[in-house]
């Protein structure tokens, strides 16, 4: 069994989800190589080489990969597939964009969002917003897998893998990158934060949403949101936690003014400790919260901020 992990990075730093993906790939029981495709991304290759368990780093450094467009990247990965039994990426926005394209070129049915490796061909994955866990066996000649980063321990960094430059591909010219607007934040990334404070429709306005950010800052945490809060424009889309947003599992998740729809729970119910603050004592979020406080956000959150500051 030979697995190739697709590293996720921004040409400068490797994303922590890559470490969890390596762990998932190692559980397939064979060797694991890692692909770093980008532009002027030698530093990323160096970081990838340190990940424990990685045999070899394949470095495809070319302007064609600068913006990680799915068309050239999938062509590159398909070209490498012959040497591998499994291709593994994180179930992130980037992994979800690229891997099914790779799978279709290889005539493989991808296994999405894997949370456990049962054996080299059998996997557990959530369906119906995490209300059921399906165990599936792949009958294809190769595996194409996306792994849920929160379900696998991050691999450590004790490795010294060799880095090998590989030939690149030409741009098929199907899509053109115009712009990227990255939400600038000094806070930790949602998917790897230890603490998350998430706000919902109950916050009422984008100005009031600063209560949520203040609480997050005191706790050194990230800011999350329900779909309703994002739709209302309180906070950008990349903060959405849930079935169709980000999957998180921090040590502490504080849900403020969030009712607890199954689509939201799907993204956060694996958090270690869940706190809910909601003025409606019947809100479903209380059914999964370790600590519930039935209170108005505008009274409870300032009080909480004060007492943590004290």
């Amino acid at each position: 069994m030979r697995a190739l992990v697709i590293a996720e990075h921004d040409n400068r730093h490797i994303k922590p989800a890559t470490h969890a993906t390596v762990t998932a790939a190692l559980q397939l029981g064979g060797t694991v190589d890692i692909l770093v495709a980008g532009t002027r991304c030698a530093a990323v290759a160096d970081q990838a080489a340190k990940i424990t368990g990685v045999g070899k780093v394949l470095l495809a450094d070319d302007a064609v990969f600068a913006e990680f467009l799915a068309e050239p990247l999938s062509t590159l990965i398909v070209g490498l597939a012959e040497d591998y039994d499994a291709l593994v990426a994180a179930a992130s926005a980037a992994g979800k964009n690229i891997m099914p394209r790779v799978a279709a070129f290889l005539d493989v049915q991808q296994v999405s969002d894997v949370i456990a490796v049962v054996s080299p061909d059998t996997f557990v994955r959530p369906i119906y917003a995490g209300n059921a866990l399906a165990t599936v066996r792949s009958n294809d000649k190769k595996r194409v897998i996306t792994a849920r980063a929160t379900a696998f321990e991050a691999a450590t960094e004790t490795g010294t893998a060799v880095i090998e430059a590989i030939p690149t591909v030409s741009d098929p010219g199907l899509s053109r990158f115009l712009e990227r607007r990255v939400t600038e934040s000094v806070r930790p990334e949602l998917t790897s934060a230890r603490v998350i404070v998430a706000g919902g429709r109950g916050i009422g306005s984008d100005s009031a949403f600063s209560l949520v950010s203040q609480l997050a800052d005191i706790l050194g945490g990230a800011v999350g949101a329900s779909r309703a809060a994002v739709d209302a424009g309180f906070i950008p889309n990349d903060a959405q936690v849930g079935q169709t947003g980000k999957i998180v599992a921090p040590d502490l998740y504080i849900a403020v003014g969030i009712s607890g729809a199954i689509q939201h729970l799907a993204g956060m119910k694996d958090s270690k400790v869940i706190v809910a603050i909601n003025k409606d004592g019947d809100a479903p979020i209380f059914q999964i919260a370790d600590y519930g406080l039935v209170a108005d956000v505008f009274e409870a959150v300032p009080e909480l901020i004060d007492s943590l500051n004290a």
Partner: peptide, 23 residues
Amino acid sequence: PRLTLLKVEEPPTRKAGMIVGSV
């Protein structure tokens, strides 16, 4: 189908928490 469904199970449930009285 290329994937065979072997079984479907309930996800683990969280143990019931508590309601606190104050901040």
